[in-house]
């Protein structure tokens, strides 16, 4: 409850600050640079949830703990959501700044691959009837997908050919305006808080469902066993 209020208030402060406190960065058309405070944290949360989903999968495979699978599943669900948000907000910026909604810029390529991985993860989950097999397969797939990500770093040129603004927008580099930096870090915090709050909600719901009623899909399995007799 307190977490909910904190996240809401903090988020509101960040939104106001993003438009009124921080300065628009030079070299961008109009106010477009303010996308930084929303788009980058969304992309960060999408990546973070991919990592958490993989960790949950590993724990599930090691311990066969239902809660670990619920963690992997809910992180993947939120990851997909934030992935879509980041793609949408990025596209709007791309149209305004670069003239087209989609450019196959390296970052755009990697987020599409992430979207495809999430899509495949849910397709796999819905295609396996036996609940235990479903969890194991999903966990194995999530780990396999995670393993291929480092190769993308080699394969997709990060900085050289990217349209993404680096110098003025990358907090790790000196060029950033101090006010912008403050709001940006605050926004990262807000989005991470929002993500953790949503994750805990979803997790609690899944854990309760798991306790109360049998899982979806168990029915098909029952039928299959019936045939074998």
């Amino acid at each position: 409850m307190i977490a909910k209020v904190l996240v809401t208030v903090w988020m509101a402060i960040i939104i106001v600050a993003a438009f009124l406190y921080a300065n628009a960065a030079v070299g961008f058309p109009g106010e477009t640079s303010r996308i930084l405070f929303f788009h980058v944290p969304q992309a960060w949360v999408a990546t973070l949830s991919f990592l958490i989903s993989m960790i949950g999968s590993c724990i599930y495979l090691a311990r066969r703990n239902l809660k670990a699978d619920n963690l992997a599943l809910s992180a993947a669900e939120l990851g997909l959501l934030f992935c879509l948000l980041a793609t949408a907000s990025g596209s709007i910026f791309a149209k305004a700044a670069w003239g087209s909604f989609w450019n196959w810029d390296p970052r755009e390529t990697s987020i599409v691959i992430l979207l495809m991985i999430y899509g495949a993860y849910f397709a796999l989950r819905s295609a396996v009837g036996d609940p235990e097999k479903r969890r194991i397969f999903a966990a194995v797939y999530s780990i396999l997908a995670f393993v291929t990500v480092p190769f993308l770093v080699f394969v997709v040129p990060r900085i050289t050919a990217s349209l993404h603004p680096e110098d003025t927008m990358n907090p790790a580099r000196p060029g950033m305006d101090p006010k912008t930096l403050k709001v940006f870090l605050g926004s990262l915090l807000a989005y991470t808080g929002l993500f953790i709050w949503l994750l805990r909600l979803r997790l609690r719901l899944l854990n309760l469902e798991g306790m109360q009623e049998p899982e979806f899909g168990a029915r098909e399995n029952m039928d299959r066993v019936g045939e074998e007799q």
Binding site: M116, A145, T148
Partner: peptide
């Protein structure tokens, strides 16, 4: 195809 393609993309680009 749905499951394999995302895993194969880095290889294919390479």
């Amino acid at each position: 195809s749905v499951l394999s393609f995302p895993l194969l993309l880095p290889l294919m680009i390479t």
